[in-house]
Structures are given as C-alpha cells and as structure tokens.
Design a protein around this nucleic acid. Sequence first.
RNA 1: GCCCCCGUAGCUCAGUGGAUAGAGCACUGGCCUCCGGAGCCAGAAGCGAAGGUUCGAUUCCUUCCGGGGGUACCA
Length: 589
Amino acid sequence: MARPELLDPVLGDLASRIRAALLAAGLPEAEADLERPRQPEHGDWATTAPLRLAKPAKRPPREIAQALIDHLDLPDAVESVEIAGPGFVNFRLAHRYHEALVHRVVAAGDDYGRRNREQGERETVNVEFVSANPTGPLHVGAGRWAATGDAIAALLEADGHEVVREYYVNDAGEQVRRFGESVVLTARGLPLGDDHYRGSYIPEVAEQLRAEHGDGLFEDIPDTEIQLGGGAEHAADGELVEDAAVTADPRVDPRIGARVGVLAVEAMRQRIQGQMHQLGVDFDVWFSERHLHDTGAIEAVIGQLKADGRTYEADGATYLRTEQFGDDKDRVIVRSDGRPTYFASDLAYMRDKWERVTADGRSGRLYYLLGADHHGYVGRLLAAAECLGLPRDRVEVRIGQLVNLLRGGEPVRMSKRTGEMIALDEVVDEVGPDVTRYHFLRQGLDTMVDFDLDVVAQQSMENPVYYVQYAHARINSLIRTADERGFDHGSLEDADLTRLTHPAELQLLTAMAQLPIVVDDAADLRATQRLARYAEELAGTFHRFYTECRVLVEGDDQLGQARYWLAVAAKQVLVNALALLRVTAPERM
RNA sequence: GCCCCCGUAGCUCAGUGGAUAGAGCACUGGCCUCCGGAGCCAGAAGCGAAGGUUCGAUUCCUUCCGGGGGUACCA
C-alpha cells in the first residue's frame, strides 16, 4: 500500500493531524490512511479510519467520524472536510495547494516524482532479467522482459533505491559446444543433426567468425596445436570436452566444437547486447557463467553447502535439501559422474550476487524476472536462497506470462528447432522501440500479451503511447507558438495562479500531483502498467484542458500566463513519467 | 497426477478490502472562422458460477466450469 502521507508534505501534515484528533477524541490508535476517492465529488482525499475503528471502539462509524472532525485542527491546505457514506471523512484541498504544486513541479524539474531515501531505508537491488541463452538472437518475448525489467529498475531508482541491471550469460555447458558444432558444420557445408541449432543466424555467425579468425578455425587440427578459449586453460572448456564423450557429433572434434562454441556464444552475446540497446535497455553487468567455473566459485559453494549439512549423497549424485524449504523435491547439484549441474551454477551465481549487493554493509535485495516457461524454477531458487542462508524476504522471483507474436491476427510460428523465428530486432525495426516497449509496459505481468505486428504498427489509438506522446508534442507546439507570437509569459513567480479555476485546470493539477504516489506504488508492486496507465490519464487531462482552456487568450494576459505555466509544469510531469518508462517524449510528431 | 497464471463492456485490457467498477478499439450522434482534430464531448454495454471470511469482496479463502503454461542427474 502506498503511503501518500510520506511523499507529500501537505498530506503528511494532514495525516498526523488526523492521528492527533483520534487520540484527542479518546479513540483507539489507528492508521490515518489517506486514499483517493473514486468520485471527484467526494473530494481529493479521504480517510477510512472511522470505518476501521468502529469495531474496536464499539461505536458507529459516522459517530466516530464526527468525533474526528470535532477534534481535527484543519490545516490551511485543506479547504473543507465532510462525513460521507458509511463513515468516510472526505477532504477537499484548498486552491493554494494547487498553486504550490506548480511551483514544486517546476522547481524539482526532472526530479519531480523521485524520492530521496535515508541511507538506512535505501536498498541495493540486483535486477536480473532476460538472461536468455546466447545460442541465438532474442525473440519478441525477450522484449517483454527487457522492457519490464528495465522499467522496474527505473522505478526502483526513482523510489530511492540503488539498482544493478544484470544479464546472466549461460556461456558454459554442453549447449555451448553444440552451438559451436552447429557453426562448424554450417561453415563446412555439412548437414546439421537433430540436436543442432538452426536458423539464418548460424551462417551469419559462421561468416563473422571466418572473417575474424580465418577458415582454419573450423578445421580439425593436430592435438599439439589446440588451444582452448583464447589460450587460457578454462575449466569450463575442459568440461565441454569431457561432456563431449557422450553427446558430441562424431564429425566434429569436440575441442573444435568447444572452441568455436565459446567464440560463437560471445558473438551472439554481442548481438543480444545490440538488440537490447536498440530497445533502450543497457545492462550494467553481463555476468558470465564461465567466470563461475574459472574462479572455482561453483566448487566453493558446493563445498560450503556440504559443510553446512545442506546436502546428501544418493545414487552417486549429490543432492541439495531444497524440499524442506518448499521445493517440490531435492535437487541434484553434482551428477553421479562428478559434473556440477546448472543448478549448482545458479547457486554460485546467487551467492556472488548477494555478496555484491550487501557489500559495505548495504541492505541488499535480489530480484529475478522470469518467463512463465521457467515457473518451475521459482521454488528451487527460493529454496536455494534459504540453503545459502539468505533472508527469504530479500529474494524475489517474479513470473511473467508469455508473449504471442501475431500478424494480422494469425500466430507467427516460432520454433527454435527449425530456426523459423522473427528476431526481436526485426520487430523493433518494423514498429519502433517506443511502441514495442510501451505495448509490454502497459499490461500487467500476469496477463499474456498478444503482440500483433499489424496492430502495433498502426499509428492510432490502438497504440496509446501515441496518445501520451501527442500530449507532450502538443504542449511543445503550444510553447513554440507562444514564442512565435511574442506572447509575454512573464515569470512563474509573477504569475497569478489563483486564476486557475476551470474544472479542466483543476483536474490537470490533481493528476499532476499524483506522480510521486504512482511512482511509489508502481515501484512497490513492481507494476509498470500503473505508471503507463497514469501517463495516459495525465495526457487525457491535458487534452481536455487544451480543448477547453485557451492559453493564448486575447485580452487577458494574466489568465494566459497562469495557463502557460500550468502547461509548462504539465509537460514536466509528462516528461518524467515517460522517462521512467524509457519512452521518448518527442517535440513534434 | 502435481504446480502456476488468467476469466471484468461486442473486442483488447486497468482496477494492491471501500462510496455510483474505468480506459482504448468498434458502434451512434455532436465539437464556436481561434494555441496541432494523433484531440474533445455525449450515448449504450460488464465483474464465469456457487459458497465462505468481513461493517464492506471485482479484490482474500474453498469448490466447480472454461482458457493458457510448467513439470528432467535438460540446457
């Protein structure tokens, strides 16, 4: 639950006065909640304290409400108070509150809506998202995690926390060698096996590596000359070769497959980084799984878990006792042949992240954003956190439903096996980054999203992002026109904001006042759609204001100036909301 | 079998226990020679079903119905 009283000094003042009044009236202690009534006629803010107190105080709610009002020392910023319905107490803000808001917004500028936290209340949050395997380009679905993870990170930052945006690169394991084999076979012009990766990007990677390393890269070479992973002896590469005993394609020397795989994976990772950047998403950390192998972090965490008595041996394998922490069953971390599982990497990775976010005594938090296809991981990740001794409430795993890619209402088949797919960058090229991001951000994570290329490509109200951007472009046009006509807007200090009395003006002001609360709320719930819907609402109130209230009015400069500054402030709020969604605010469109 | 998500207007979706459940699309009808009509105003239309908790349930719990997804010593 958002706490408006913490974000707005006026509301904070009101809340404490309510608490004082309840106390003075001899009522039991209660939260002085403030919420916004649905109906505008019910005022700007309301408290439900009397309804909550009815039972403990054994008095009717309306009577309590009256007692509250009788003892309430009404602040200047509140114009009126009344009892309504079963026992709500409604407050209407005085006009000076709205006037002060314009000054607040303009003074705060880009910081309006952002919150400062004391050191003790600030968390360092590691937000891990996308983390798709670098064995192929990203598809549209990854765009959802990219847009959402990035916006949640931005919201947490605005809410006063420190954030690290992180991508976990699965650049170790058998899939790397298999990916390498696919590239080698393609480079040699040989047919691929059933287990190989396909798709037009494979020949592209083969060509790129050929250009960078020469043809010899794909040829089998004598044992004495082989070098793994750019010369260094990588444990991961050693494992790759060992794994190959069972699963390798006989046509490709596993050492060649592994070596090419490592290079191909890095090439793919760079393309993914480019895809992310194109969407406006730039990660702070690209964390290599290989790094965990190289540094012995995996063995270390296994050793620690064994020492802590979290494991047991069965059938020659090592199991982690995750079931006692809510997982469906205990999980293997070391296979019977001695190789660690991916889950073991996950454990080492989690420990590494936790050490980073809690370094220097900071208050850390781990946030995982996963697709519904990984929902089975939630239980084991949370159990893993407990096995590692991490506080459970500091590890958050959120699941988002998947994306359906459509064209003209028909599903676009995507199959990794046949390689038939439309990559994320192709989609973004077609419809643009703003539309792509916004389309994902305005819907909750629990809802499955249809991404219809034909619909999304339309520049109409099928895409509310244009509605919001248009409001911004309109304000700019307004300011431009005022300039061209030599309109004297004066200074904000001299503007007579008491002239802003039209209902459309008051609605706009009221909407503008909500941004800090919406940000807090959305950050708290990790719900980007809150912010997107708010931006639409704000744009709507501006459009109505624009239609009903002329700014460049003839013969009333004072009114024009007041409205001019209102528009300037509204633009700032719009810009700030769009910035958090990482959607551009165009001057013209 | 077990687990997760969803079911709100004709369609796509908001709505974290509060008062008369909101937008967009689609449909119908309007918008003064004037700052951008990608806009504004008006109309009609809805919480899958049944129980329970609560002063109060679209929201929390149970069951049922309907739709989507997940269930490895895979990666």
